Simulated assay, not measured.
Amino acid sequence: MNQAANPSTETLDRSAARAPAARVATPSAREIDATLNARLRELKTAQLHESFDKQGSFLYLEDFLPRDYTERLIDAVHAVTPAVNRNYLPGHKQGGSVSRHAIDKLAPFIADLYRSEALIKWLETISGDKLQLSPADDPHAYALYFYTRPGDHIGWHYDTSYYEGRRYTMLLGVIDDSSCRLDYELHTHNPEVPDEPGSVQYPPGALVFFDGDKLRHRITPLKANEMRVSLTFEYVTNPNMRPWQRFISNMKDSIAYFGFGQVFRRKAGKNGSV
């Protein structure tokens, strides 16, 4: 079940009180790469790659994104709020989503950050895979997820790849005035290694990076007077998808995330009639 609706006024007002004023200038691709390269040089990338492998393609960093960029993402949350699509799947999922198509119009900084060569090269080093951008018609390429009403959550799942190759998920914390946690289980597909449970409450600027087909995970339910917004980037190793898999992916996105209008109207209007 989907319905277009904005997050609660109260929770957004509380967040807006802490958010910086909206910025006029958006950094160029070169400026984004320079900023990220400066931050990435501070990290022990070789050790992080080893940790990623040891944990079965999973990495958590509590302090990743430069503070100024986290503030820009908070600005983006307020810019895209009118486009939030509420969704509800009994027993599995409740919350709000904004797809890359709305983000392209309302918060282009996110799209520029997603395409950063510096970021992609670093993620390739961490994963050991050659990564590509998700296709232009994939609404999940980059998306914002809103938890703004009591009970908003998502149950245990994998970020199943319908592409012919692997799909990697990168999560960034944006707003977290909540008790929600990312619970996860490592090594669930490796019979030689015992399952390893874990849980993090990733704050604004934190990073979670994993192979979507390997990490079983969930977001615990939101409580009253709380709010949480996170950003996801999806990168693939092969952008091809078979027609039947495309149909399944489109239906999942329509029902569980962005609504039929956002998914299918966008596809019908790729030649200019969006």
Rank of each mutant, 00 (worst) to 15 (best):
I154Y: 13
C180S: 15
L113G: 04
A136K: 15
K214R: 07
P204E: 11
D112S: 11
A34P: 00
P139V: 03
R67G: 07
N271L: 11
P204I: 09
H153W: 07
K270F: 12
Q201W: 10
F210A: 01
K130R: 13
F64P: 02
K121S: 05
P108H: 13
D253L: 03
G91C: 03
G173Y: 10
H189M: 02
S99T: 07
R18P: 03
R246W: 07
A22Q: 11
F260Y: 12
H187R: 01
D195E: 12
Q55A: 05
R18D: 13
A136T: 10
S15F: 01
H140M: 08
T70C: 02
K130D: 14
A141S: 08
P203E: 01
L65H: 04
G56H: 11
A83K: 12
L215Q: 03
R67P: 02
V77G: 02
S178T: 10
A76N: 08
A17Q: 13
N6C: 05
F210R: 02
L73I: 01
I32H: 01
V263K: 00
L222C: 05
L215M: 11
Q3K: 03
A46K: 07
P239M: 07
S254V: 09
V208D: 00
N240T: 09
L48S: 12
S179H: 15
T26S: 12
R167M: 09
N225M: 14
K267W: 13
I154C: 04
S99K: 00
H153N: 15
P191A: 04
T45L: 15
E71H: 14
Y69L: 04
I103C: 02
A141G: 08
A21M: 04
F264W: 15
T11G: 07
G155L: 05
S15Y: 00
G155M: 04
P203N: 06
L40A: 06
L222P: 02
D213P: 11
P66N: 08
E196I: 11
I74D: 11
A29P: 07
N2I: 05
S15K: 04
A21Y: 11
G269N: 10
Q94L: 10
W244T: 11
S178M: 07
S127E: 01
A4V: 08
M227K: 12
E42M: 12
M241V: 08
P203I: 04
D33Q: 10
D138W: 02
L113Q: 04
D213N: 11
F52M: 02
V274N: 08
S179C: 08
M251E: 02
S28Y: 03
N190A: 14
H92Q: 08
Q94R: 11
V236C: 09
F258K: 15
A76P: 01
S97N: 15
V193K: 03
F247I: 13
A107M: 03
D112I: 13
S254L: 10
K121N: 07
T81P: 00
H101M: 09
P108G: 12
S161C: 04
S273A: 12
T148C: 12
L133C: 08
V274G: 13
H157S: 09
S179Y: 08
Y158C: 15
L123M: 10
K267T: 09
P197G: 05
A118T: 06
I126Q: 03
R86D: 11
G261P: 01
F264I: 00
K267F: 08
L43S: 05
Q262K: 01
D213F: 14
E117R: 05
Y147R: 00
M170Q: 10
D177A: 14
